[in-house]
Design a protein around this nucleic acid. Structure first.
Lengths: 201, 201, 201, 201
DNA sequence: TATGAATGAGCTTTCATTCAT
DNA sequence: TATGAATGAAAGCTCATTCAT
């Protein structure tokens, strides 16, 4: 009777981080393909090549997975925008705003499917977390700083930030719906519109 | 004890429209209170004082109810705005835009709970119906007309309409989240912001 | 305001026998097309252009309809065979048996769909009614009479009747399954086989 | 009280084959007792001492269970007949045929309840599978071989096989209906009848 | 006699979660 | 850490039947 290995072939234990990643990746693909509600834990586990029980070793529930993906989405989105803005001269406010718009549109167009998954709340208390959107603060700061620097003029930076952010969001939604994927032209027009809003009297 | 009544109390058969209304009302209350997903047909039927089978006599599924409510919500919302605009002098474009904003905010604040229920799609193809939003067309027309009349200036009325509408929407969302229910002040500031955007160069 | 007729157009009341027939006809078509179990009372009523409640005025249940159809099927089947036999010379036993076979096959091929409907019992006590099959008695008598007349020889007419009847039944079933619809050839071969069984030693 | 056991008593996990068997056994008993249509999955699960969900781990539906039982019934039935025939001298054709009849009757009498359950199709396309009956082929071969060996004479072995098989089937049905459970005498008479049919001219 | 709105018991099926191994 | 068989609550939907008109 052979005593040796046999299990060396398929290491039953992977580093936890990898496992988690496997599951997250599998879930993302399925959520995008068939929606969160329709995807079963079973399917996620199968696709991640993991037993159903193992899933629960890493996540408490399906919603927990969605939350993790949301976290990651928001961070990634924000980083991307920050990187774009960071590439602009510190005192070129118009460029910074344009970068915000351009990077925001591009990032959204790239990942709107994940966005939909991740912001498709099922709970009635959805009205709690949106306020946490850190981009609103970023944008508000940008507007306020530009105003202070005399680049433009805004009375209520918070309000303007909300309008700009939602305007951008809605514009991309509209573009996606209508199959327009030319983010460049979109960014151009949108920036122009936003800058009109910021013109001093 | 009156002998006459007896049947007046519990008419087995009600006019279809009333029955439908009963069910719709019951569903609305439950959807708002505990979410669409968590509400069962059973609960709706019980609350509407109707047998489960009767529910299916009037609606094909829970989603069918949501669709009916959505229809009604959209129509009501739009009517309210139209009524407000209609009360303004036909050539006072600024007043018309302000009315749009004010009525939109008020209507949304009044009914955002129903709004949430009704736009909480479960399907992954949510990206189909939003474009049907007739208010976008209304707003775009308003902007274009005002431009033609020389009241203000817009390069891309459709784009501007999207930004305004989503800006308004997002602003109210934000207000609700933060417990601000002073629609008046909100409308004031928002209109001012929008009008800045429309100023000719 | 016209007071006249209005109802003369569509006489709400049809003679009971007609109504019953309408329902029976509708049920038959549906049962054949989609099976008894799958057909709903609603469908029968709709097809018969009658209200659901009216259905219950004429039949106590779906099974009651099936029973009525069965009754009718059996009677018709038997009549057809009797007519065929009756057309033969009273003392030509071979011809009478052949007629039985031929008419039986023809009738079955013509109406096997209804046969299937009508003998597709759902109850576990199916083992009760088959014995009522009057054709077995008819056939047994025929065999006994022929034997007494010296045309052939049978030890146990009842047993032989069962074998012949079921043999015939099974043969047609087989033919139908295999798409053979030439009843003539079938009857020829089957009669020959049966007559071999009846040959005296 | 033994302390060791505890888990031996109610092993949460049983070998799949045993579980399947438990369910099949429970279903059979219920189907026989109250019919397939009337038996609910719930009842089967309860009787098999299994959760309802577990049922669906092993079978896709009630019909799936019936199909499994049918499969098993047909195989068992055929095996039994083959065993009986196999016990006869290879060249004693009469004995072989008698064995077929005798074993067929005995097997059917023993298991007609299961037979009824298993062949109580609900679908309108019942006319598809019967032809698959492998016993017809077996019987046809037997008849042809006996003919070739000069033991008897048959013109159309396939047709004769159908008649014999259905004759046998119908005879037992009749016997059951009338409470005759003496398979022996039945076999005697039936074999005699069949052999008459096979006599050379 | 005829209607058809209303009933509600009852069935199948799904799936998140547990837990013995 | 990993497994996956087992669980069982929960929910949607159907349809035979009733009954007030």
């Amino acid at each position: 009777m052979p005593v040796v290995a046999r299990k060396a072939l398929k290491p039953r234990t992977k580093p936890a981080e990898i496992r988690r990643e496997d599951i997250l990746r599998a879930a993302t693909a399925l959520f995008i393909a068939k929606g969160v509600g329709t995807t079963t834990i079973d399917e996620i586990a199968t696709r991640a090549e993991v037993a159903k029980g193992t899933f629960y070793l890493y996540f408490a529930s399906k919603e927990d997975v969605v939350a993790a993906l949301r976290e990651r989405f928001v961070t990634g989105f924000r980083d991307r925008i920050h990187r774009a803005i960071g590439a602009c001269p510190a005192d070129d406010w118009t460029a910074r705003l344009k970068s915000f718009v351009q990077a925001g549109i591009a990032a959204y167009l790239d990942e709107y499917q994940l966005h939909d998954v991740v912001f498709h709340d099922h709970r009635p208390d959805q009205r709690r977390m949106k306020g946490d959107n850190p981009l609103l603060g970023d944008l508000s700061s940008l507007l306020a700083s530009g105003t202070r620097a005399g680049a433009w003029s805004v009375d209520h930076p918070d309000l303007a930030a909300i309008v700009l952010f939602n305007g951008l969001h809605g514009t991309v939604d509209h573009a996606i719906e209508h199959g327009i994927l030319d983010g460049g032209g979109l960014a151009e027009n949108l920036s122009a519109l936003f800058l009109r809003m910021l013109r001093p009297d």
